[in-house]
Design a protein around this nucleic acid. Structure first.
Lengths: 268, 268
DNA sequence: AAAATTCTTTGATGTAAATCAAACAACTAC
DNA sequence: GTAGTTGTTTGATTTACATCAAAGAATTTT
């Protein structure tokens, strides 16, 4: 979730800004695990919580979050088969969710960043059906699903919000199906980059440059292609002057060109 | 949704059985549109509604369904861009949902049969983001989403049920992503056939034979392959003695062989 | 019943992406 | 700092599936 603005120095700065929790009351600063935190004064509130609450309702809404949990890079927030108890709101960090077939093939089903909700897969069977892996050190708000449901019954605006989050995930996956079923490698990569930069921009990062949190292999798994093809496509875009790539650093030079590749129709 | 048991004659018989509504009270028999119907005495209740209601609660639950609506083969229940108002429970018939990119490429995102819920895509933006097309004459229960949400607040078991339905859809789409991203043509077709027959069997149809409601092209669109490849794969399975195919009629001769193709690991 | 349309099958050929392979860059551990 | 590990790039070759094409069923229209 740390994004470059122009140089390596800037990367660090931005990371500090978003990870820094010194603006929070002392009793909410980071300690080992399980710290009671409040949505009411979280700067990500408008991303993961409904808007339009009056102050006293907002206070009640804080009850939805039980604790906070740190997940180190490479560790799992939950795994396939784990009992489902909670949804998780990402405060900082970056996750991938993935499933694997019995014969070991892995499919990345999504990349999630701050303000996004993770764990919806577990509701249907009371067990998680995917793994959620932190791609960088992360910090999540643990929302026991019983709390979510109870408060949803009390607050229609929260209820609607929960429904929208689930519906959004369904719609997102629909568009991934379109990507996987109908698009060629260049179109997939263009769509991927545009989606990523759009979400990052909504979180206050640059519209043009960022640091990838995932490997070429993980991108390929998400987009249904091999890591070599991901790498070649990046190189191709770079040769064409559409993007600048240096390992995990990406700068979008010609966003319109990317949009045109993704969707030949709408753009000119 | 009408499935053969052994001959064309049987197909008609089964269709009649499931479409026949003479068991219903006179005032609920089919007329042009908008007939009040009750979940409490619907034979699909256990598929689309939560179980474990006591009789008086069940009565209240009937309020979730406002009307019924007939959709003729080829017609749409809703289209991309339509305002979202309701979820639909399929009583009879068979649907596909699909999205299309601006340049006209179509992606089938699902096939839905009796007892399944359709329309969840519309919640997030208050507008539908896909088309729902009847692949055969269909009859759906219209459930205004406002009713669903209101009753959900009153009945936790209904609330949980709605959440599970949405989560199930997310998990289904996850597995389609695995299919599209990692599997070869034969594996996709094997998975498709096994899934279809399993759902049909849960509805009282044969475990081994059925009539496809969709074209080769629609199957291909769902599975990310061309209609010729679908046809060739069917022919291959037929040559191998795994299935019997004659146009839309399919009989599964060797279910274990299909499972083995779908998942080389778990089976023998 | 004939004609038109839609859907399916099968064959021949082409191609985008996978696979195989090797060098190189970056990061981690000692 | 060096060795080992992990991730990335690029080239050569292969392949699964797409594309093109044409004939044959099945269904619908007239």
């Amino acid at each position: 979730m740390c994004q470059a603005n122009s140089s390596n120095k800037d990367i660090k700065t931005v990371c500090l800004e978003i990870n820094d929790n010194s603006w929070q009351p002392m009793d909410q600063r980071t300690t080992p695990e399980s710290i009671k935190v409040a949505c009411s004064n979280c700067n990500l509130r408008e991303l993961c919580m409904p808007i339009g609450f009056n102050p006293e309702d907002m206070q009640k809404l804080d009850e939805v979050v039980a604790t906070r949990r740190r997940v180190k890079q490479g560790e799992r927030l939950f795994s396939n088969g784990d009992p489902f108890t909670s949804l998780y709101a990402i405060r900082t960090g970056f996750f991938k969710t993935c499933i694997s077939s019995e014969d070991g093939r892995e499919q990345v089903t999504g990349f999630q960043m701050a303000g996004e909700i993770i764990g919806l897969d577990g509701i249907v069977s009371d067990h998680h059906s995917c793994n959620a892996v932190a791609l960088e050190d992360a910090d999540v708000c643990v929302m026991p699903f019983a709390n979510v449901e109870e408060l949803s019954r009390e607050f229609p605006v929260l209820q609607r919000h929960v429904h929208k989050i689930m519906s959004r995930e369904i719609v997102r996956e629909n568009s991934i199906m379109m990507l996987l079923g109908n698009m060629r490698a260049e179109e997939r990569i263009a769509a991927f980059l545009l989606n990523l930069v759009q979400r990052l921009h909504a979180r206050g990062f640059s519209q043009s440059e960022f640091i990838l949190r995932m490997t070429r292999e993980e991108i390929g798994s998400y987009l249904g292609m091999k890591l070599e093809t991901v790498s070649r496509t990046f190189s191709k875009f770079s040769d064409d002057g559409i993007i600048e790539v240096k390992q995990r650093y990406v700068k979008i030079i010609e966003p319109e060109a990317l949009k045109k590749i993704f969707n030949p129709q709408t753009c000119s």
